[in-house]
Simulated scan of single mutants.
Amino acid sequence: MSERQRADARRNYARILAVAAEEVAVQGAGASLEQIARTAGVGSATVRRHFPTRRALLEAVSRERIEVLRARAQELTGEGDSRDALLEWLGEVVAYCVSARGLAAALAYDGAGTDPAHENSCSAALEEAAGPLLHRAAQDGAVPTAVTVADLITLIVGIALATEHYPDPAAQADRLFRLAVAGLSPQA
């Protein structure tokens, strides 16, 4: 491949990604790949060459948000109460999943792989980043030791996907997340 062809491929990738981010923001995870190709001024085959699956496209669109969440987990690790730090981070993940259409779908386990946490780069990045937060909370007895980051991400994805069509999805997702944290037992 010549330098000119590589430069064209990089421009196409950047254009497709920019258009995809806009389409996913409006349409969600089901954004039309054909519409993305038309708007980007490329053929469907070019989109599929850069992003062979819908998940690959959603992961690329979500990469910046995942990086922000990774950095935030690192900031919170070792700060204050371990349970509060973990819950603050999880609350931010919920808020991101609700506000950034397509992120929950990028994190969702689709059954294609054998390991839900490592089947995609988004989930693997969050698991790695949040591992120390969860480990510290488990050591402090704030969460059961059997809980995994993959469990928590699955819970958040479920909440985000279940509330995306509510009139105020952020408020409903936060309410359900708080309910999950508190549990159903009455407080003593």
Rank of each mutant, 00 (worst) to 15 (best):
G158K: 00
A37P: 06
R175S: 06
G43R: 07
I16G: 07
D115E: 11
V19I: 10
V98Q: 01
H165S: 12
T145S: 12
A162D: 14
E128C: 02
Q27L: 15
P167Q: 00
M1P: 12
T163D: 03
G131S: 12
R48A: 09
D81I: 03
R10P: 05
S62K: 01
A112K: 12
A45L: 06
D151E: 03
A129Y: 07
V93K: 05
G41R: 07
P132F: 03
V149K: 08
I159D: 00
E164Q: 10
A180V: 04
S121M: 07
E88N: 10
G91C: 09
P169V: 02
A29W: 13
A56G: 11
E23V: 14
Y166E: 15
A18L: 13
L184I: 04
L126I: 01
L184W: 12
A105I: 04
A170I: 03
R65K: 11
V93S: 04
L69Q: 05
T46C: 05
A100G: 13
A124E: 04
T39L: 08
I16L: 12
P116W: 00
A182D: 11
A146T: 11
L76Q: 00
R55Y: 03
S82P: 14
E75M: 08
A138Q: 09
D8S: 12
V19T: 14
E64C: 04
E67H: 11
G102L: 06
A56H: 04
A129C: 02
G43L: 00
G111W: 06
C122E: 08
H50N: 05
Q187E: 13
D168V: 02
L103N: 05
A100Q: 15
E127N: 09
Y13A: 13
S99H: 14
E3P: 12
A125Q: 04
S32Y: 07
A104R: 07
L33P: 13
V26D: 14
L176W: 00
L76R: 01
A7P: 09
N12D: 15
L176M: 01
R136S: 15
V42Y: 07
E164I: 09
D8N: 14
M1I: 09
